[in-house]
Design a protein around this nucleic acid. Sequence first.
DNA 1: TACTGTGAGTTTGGATTTCCTACCCACTGG
DNA 2: CCAGTGGGTAGGAAATCCAAACTCACAGTA
Lengths: 157, 157
Amino acid sequence: MAAAPKNARPCSIADALALVGEKYSLLILREVCLGNGRFDQLVRNTGAPRDVLATRLRRLVDAGILDRRPYSERPQRFEYRPTRAGLELEPVLITLMAWGDRHLRGDDDRPMVIEHVCGHELVPEVTCRACGAPVRHEDLTSHPQTPGWTLSGPSVA
Amino acid sequence: MAAAPKNARPCSIADALALVGEKYSLLILREVCLGNGRFDQLVRNTGAPRDVLATRLRRLVDAGILDRRPYSERPQRFEYRPTRAGLELEPVLITLMAWGDRHLRGDDDRPMVIEHVCGHELVPEVTCRACGAPVRHEDLTSHPQTPGWTLSGPSVA
DNA sequence: TACTGTGAGTTTGGATTTCCTACCCACTGG
DNA sequence: CCAGTGGGTAGGAAATCCAAACTCACAGTA
């Protein structure tokens, strides 16, 4: 998943996945968002092999999704924290988690529950900013913007 | 990414990614949601090698995310369409696409624009169903539910 | 009848990635 | 001095990916 597939539809989903779609990347981001940004915590909590973790961390830092900051000189120790771009990816994680809770588990064995400041449990909902309505498939119309690509595929081949 | 990492935090994000986190899976779902559910369209539009595509399709059908239905007998031809579970994954794709548009591109070269029935361009926003407020990192508190796992990691090791 | 094309895959063999175990280094606390 | 912890590397085995070729069934044309 290192690079976006070639000759494929140009798409920000593909681009985003090329960055964060590799195995463990989103789990790393999850832990970092939970405040667990140290190497060994990440190893324990994500289950990633140490070398893979080191590679992913470099990539995510390069991509501007994580920030690597020292929390101790002598011995030098670093901790990873989400940048603004990283934090803005959190809603994706939350939405995915809710999907997994709903479709892959019973409603009663969710491994994690998120509480919102409003006092209720967070049930995430993707809405249209303009009208506030929840997004439903039937309410959407897609408009490709790339010359040569129609809704159904490349027009010139 | 075939299976969820072992010894790692139990988590629906990990479970969901074990299903749809493999390379191309989400791009396949994107195309299927756009209505492009035929094998050769998927090959062209996702850029996936044919064998990988065949493997992914089987997996997604088994997982109940896609439905494989004949659209022609003689010759037998099949087409893939999203199930309800698949459609409910669409908001994740849309949120991810918006993130990619914002962070990986200029606002003026988005490859695809989605229009909402309300007449405006869709700008997706993840909100709290209870209070309707957009989800912000600072407003959330996570509560692990699994014995042995705290916020920062396994407590018993 | 033969000839060409299409849809939906499967097969093959090699190139990449990932995984896992072990090791290394710097330091700390006892 | 010793064991332990944080943050990595090294090396080979295992899994995955990829491109291209191949299959099979049928359709259209001539």
